[in-house]
Design a protein around this nucleic acid. Structure first.
Length: 518
RNA sequence: GAUCCGGUAGCUCAGUCGGUAGAGCAUUUGACUUUUAAUCAAAGGGUCGUGGGUUCGAGCCCCACCCGGAUCACCA
């Protein structure tokens, strides 16, 4: 495959060859010993001469200002940037000045990796700077990076960004470039990692076990969604990419663990938009001998701790709302929430009465909708968007929740809650159904839905029923959409901003014609 | 899936009424030993997303398609 090189790419390849001609390996194998990171030096060096005299840094050259025999450059490592001062006679004490005159001034490009050793000082303009005594070339960059310039406006004191690398398509397709030039993007993923670490620490401290369960499943159970299908050649059997791991985690509770949790990718063959990616991360946890009321208390404690550990406080700003994750959170049953936001109490109402209410509220309904579906529609239209502060909605209609236990006192409802924040669901939990006979009937109800054409109805999993027949303790289970939680905590409005590599259509290469599909 | 917006130099963008393709940064050459988007002088760099059409002439108008974004519908 031949590629058309731009002028700048040709120049960089010529520089690569010239570096080799100087006897310098542009891709040396040996390790470079790093003593500090840029952020450490900005924090710890107070300007006192004679401190920080043996400092070595490594990273990319991000800018360079050459003034004859002396130069300034910015070196960027994983922590940030440090200005370096390079003087010809410092790095070339002998007669041969090639290292400065040729390598540093001519052959070095923005994006190249270098290692520098020297001592810290403060320039007359007050910037902490590393004066370089030893300069080591570490890796050549053959493609120009986008040049993003940040400058502090002297009048307003605000940071202005020039020539920002903002095109979403390029940013997502070349996330590595995005991460190099946009530090705020790097920070989002650091926060994402911290969120997951803080959750793990919370669960591990309770003695619950982190587990892994199959991604390739013969039956796509545990949720209502269209799956991806694949095929195992040796077994000659079709397999599904999991849409949920719920049924496997419950099998582990049957097996005797007190608590199990899994952070896992789920795969759903459905539409994509600002809040949906075909693969996404869910955290599911199951704890024996507990119910959904206990789970609500656990979740609010856990989220308060996680948000506080990650952000330094319990309040997060999102879409102009101050969202406070400190518990306890409001708890409303679904019917109470509808009464609160519509003024109408639907308790004890018949399906026809509820349908008439929908029409009076201009909510679109059709005759295939049962009572549970109608109530869910009203909730979605009238209530959901109002739930800005973390709020538990409890006690859902039984029809839509085949894996939850029937309510201990309310007919037609199940012991389920969802946690809403900023008008969006971020967690879903049940007192888990552990009655194998009831569970079989619920699966059979789902089969009837499937026969009526519902391609998202849940599939009957005979082995899961067998596990329940051996006996499962009363258990509460919870799922949290990690991507959406991270969106909230980092203030992002697109799931693509919290996934390193969001799903994209394949890049089209020029000159190729794609065969017609279908 | 529907509607709207966008795709022009390595990057960010401008491009008037349809009449020779523009700027800043980046790149190249030169000057400069404490710069701060360094500065100064000069130069090179384009299949205007793809394919058709209208026209004497298309970045611009028309049609189709590709990619992306936003909104809506469905879903978590």
């Amino acid at each position: 495959m031949t590629q058309q090189l731009s002028e700048q790419e040709i120049v960089r390849r010529e520089a690569l060859a010239a570096i080799r001609e100087l006897g310098i390996d542009p891709y040396p194998a040996q390790a470079f010993d790093v003593s500090h990171h840029a952020a450490d030096l900005h924090r710890d060096f107070d300007g006192t001469e004679g401190t920080f005299t043996e400092v070595s840094l490594a990273g990319r050259i991000m800018s360079r200002r050459v003034m004859g025999k002396a130069s300034f450059a910015e070196l960027q490592d994983s922590s940030g940037r440090m200005q370096i001062y390079v003087s010809r006679d410092d790095i070339c004490p002998d007669e041969n000045k090639d290292l400065y005159n040729k390598l540093f001034k001519k052959l070095l490009d923005i994006g190249d990796f270098v290692g520098v050793k020297g001592y810290m000082f403060t320039t007359k303009l007050g910037e902490k700077t590393l004066r370089v005594e030893e300069f080591t070339f570490l890796s050549k960059s053959l493609r120009p990076l986008p040049i993003v310039k940040r400058v502090t406006n002297e009048e307003t004191g605000e940071e202005e960004i020039h020539d920002a690398f903002t095109d979403p398509e390029l940013r997502y397709r070349r996330r590595y470039v995005d991460l190099v030039v946009n530090p705020q993007v790097r920070d989002i993923f650091i926060t994402r990692s911290k969120v997951m670490t803080a959750m793990r620490q919370y669960f591990n401290a309770q003695g619950w076990l982190e587990v892994e369960t199959p991604i390739l499943q013969p039956i796509h159970g545990g949720a209502a969604a269209r799956p991806f299908m694949t095929h195992h050649n040796t077994l000659d059997t079709d397999l599904y990419m999991r849409i949920a791991n719920e049924l496997y985690l419950k099998r582990l509770i049957v097996g005797g663990y007190d608590g199990v949790y899994e952070f896992g990718k789920m795969f759903r063959n459905e539409g994509m938009d600002r809040t949906h990616n075909p693969e996404f991360t869910a955290m599911e946890i199951y704890v024996a001998y507990k119910d959904y009321e206990w789970m609500m208390t656990m979740v609010e404690k856990m989220l308060e701790q996680v948000v506080t550990e990650v952000t330094g406080g319990s309040v997060v700003e999102y879409s102009g709302n101050q969202i406070d994750f400190s518990g306890p959170y409001d708890r409303l049953t679904m019917l109470e929430s509808i009464e609160k936001y519509t003024g109408t109490d639907l308790r004890g109402k018949s399906e026809d009465e509820v349908r008439a209410f929908c029409k009076s509220q201009h909510i679109e309904v059709d005759n295939s909708m049962g009572l549970g579906k109608l109530i869910d529609e009203i909730f979605g239209e009238k209530v959901e968007a109002n739930l800005i502060q973390p709020t538990y909605i409890t006690d859902y209609p039984i029809e839509m929740t085949p894996l939850a236990k029937k309510h201990r006192s309310e007919d037609g409802l199940v012991e389920r809650f969802e946690l809403f924040v900023n008008g969006k669901e971020i967690a879903n939990a049940y007192s888990e159904l552990n009655d194998p006979i009831d569970q079989r009937e619920r699966f059979e109800d789902q089969l009837k839905l499937a026969e009526r054409g519902d391609d998202e109805a849940m599939v009957l999993d005979e082995d899961f029923l067998r596990a329940l027949e051996y006996g499962m303790p009363p258990t509460s289970g919870l799922g949290i959409g990690i991507d959406r939680l991270v969106m909230l905590i980092t203030g992002q409005h697109s799931i693509q901003e919290v996934l390193f590599f969001p799903q994209m259509k394949p890049e089209v290469k020029q000159g190729t014609t794609s065969a017609d599909e279908e």
